[in-house]
């Protein structure tokens, strides 16, 4: 069964959460929450891939409708992908039940 909502998480270097949010908004996301975090990576992997991992990270958490997810991830890939300074990764998680969303409340009211 296709779930109505998904949770998109984007992990980016500090300072790039706004860029991530803007690109997600341009694909139809209405809002999100920004969390601060610290990244870790093995020193060997850093040397091997010739990249440096900035430990300070920001996580952008966006709850959105399933049909918007592809567009959001596509925009995120372009704006904060590994080829950019944001060095971001983004993924979507399945969501079972949702409550408190403005659009869902409106839908429920219309059904009544």
């Amino acid at each position: 069964m296709k779930k109505a909502y998904k949770c998109v998480l984007a992990i980016v270097n500090t300072g790039f959460s706004e860029v991530a949010m803007e690109s997600a908004k341009s694909a139809g996301a209405t809002g999100g929450t920004i969390l601060t975090a610290r990244g870790t990576a093995s020193k060997e992997a850093e040397k091997f891939f010739n990249i440096s991992i900035q430990p300070e990270k920001e996580i952008v958490m966006i709850l959105c409708k399933t049909d918007l997810v592809d567009g959001i991830l596509n925009n995120l890939y372009k704006a904060i992908g590994s080829s950019t300074q944001a060095q971001g990764i983004a993924f979507a998680l399945p969501v079972d039940e949702v409550c408190g969303l403005e659009e869902k409340i409106k839908e429920e009211n219309q059904q009544k």
Binding site: C7, V95, E97, V98, C99, G100
Partner: peptide
């Protein structure tokens, strides 16, 4: 979320 003052929020579950 509806009734508490400044208590607005969202909640969701992930399997």
């Amino acid at each position: 979320f509806k009734k508490v003052r400044n208590g607005k929020g969202i909640a969701y579950t992930i399997p």
